[in-house]
Write a protein that binds this DNA or RNA. Structure first.
Lengths: 196, 196
DNA sequence: ATATTATGTAAGTATACACCTACACAATAC
DNA sequence: GTATTGTGTAGGTGTATACTTACATAATAT
């Protein structure tokens, strides 16, 4: 036998590059030629690492989740008196959309007829939801609170809020500071039930 | 001179068909051949009505707004004691995503690098926002209310809520009744500031 | 009637792009 | 060394598809 296979490692190195390409160009304009070039490879070599373009895209969806979740986990640990949920809201209000990776969801949603992409998106949203629902519950456990919609529905609404922050950013519908206020103010309002 | 030009009328007749095609197939799979077939025409004839595929898509974005706004206007007039905002929320909770036309936004968002499509989307969201912000203010004027985020930000959040309803529907993340509760409960919570 | 413009039908073109083949060279195991 | 497998380079192929051209026919104005 000869020469160890480093495909796994290379996939890991290249996925961020690919993901960024899909985010920047959208699915169609991210041609395999463009992807290869940005990776400093030939198309050929990409096809040795993934069976087809769709697989590259699926990897990008996973990466989008991991990228975001890594930041959130980091925020969980930096205790500053506020609840983790509040810290995440503040951070997202300030930085949402900065990476541009959210555009991968736009591309994915446009391909919802493809069962594999559909399922990958489904799982991604489900993971975000699980994460957030935990934070909502933890946040509410700390406080006296009023009536508010249940945690699961609230968590979806928070995701919708983030999505809207992305869109208002993408389409320049709101300036940076207003976006920050939107995510933070409406977000805490959703968490707390009106009083904050 | 001879034979009156009925292009305007035909565009109006065909736009719903085209819009539905884009919604069903997404931008890429909605080939000009497919669009023509669904219109009962040849590609050729489509190109006599619109200069290119993008123009057909832009018309579909306009149609999406008109289609939705027409329903909302209808709901405004049917007074039943509740505020119009509440009526719209109830209706959207029940029917959101039913037409499938929202998928046009998915397609559009994936093309946000194209300045024309970007601008059309921008205007569409702006129009929705104007509409909703009016309803929010009117709703709040009727009531004693608590502290809540300002109407403009709330209106964006409501749009995000609708977007999320679409996505949870599209990806089968929530069953119909839960989606209805989400839009209605979280929606009124956003409007009222917690007490309802 | 006839000139003029709209509408229908059929075929074609040019290009972009996902994906493949073929082969040379390099590295590792034995 | 040498057999084996990974990596790099160059080019090709087949197809899908946005958009066009050419021409026949139908409707209306004068």
């Amino acid at each position: 036998m000869a020469r160890p296979n480093q495909s796994d490692q290379r996939r890991e190195e290249l996925t961020p590059v690919i993901a960024r390409s899909f985010a920047e160009l959208g699915y169609r304009r991210a041609t395999t030629a463009a992807l290869a070039q940005r990776c400093g490879l030939r198309e050929n070599q990409l096809y040795r690492l993934w069976p087809n373009k769709k697989a590259m895209f699926l990897a990008s969806i996973d990466y989008l989740y991991e990228f975001t979740a890594a930041k959130w986990r980091e925020l969980l640990s930096s205790d500053d008196g506020r609840t983790p949920a509040e810290r995440i809201l503040t951070w997202e209000g300030e930085h949402r959309g900065e990476s541009g990776l959210h555009r991968i969801t736009f591309a994915g949603l446009n391909e919802t007829d493809d069962p594999d992409i559909r399922e990958a998106l489904r799982q991604m949203y489900q993971k975000f939801h699980s994460f957030i629902i935990g934070q909502v519950q933890e946040h509410r456990a700390d406080k006296d609170h009023n009536e508010h919609p249940d945690a699961a529905l609230t968590a979806w609404a928070v995701i919708g809020l983030g999505m809207m922050a992305n869109i208002t950013h993408e389409l320049k519908l709101l300036p940076h500071d207003m976006r920050g206020r939107m995510v933070h103010d409406v977000g805490t309002h959703l968490l707390d039930g009106g009083q904050n």
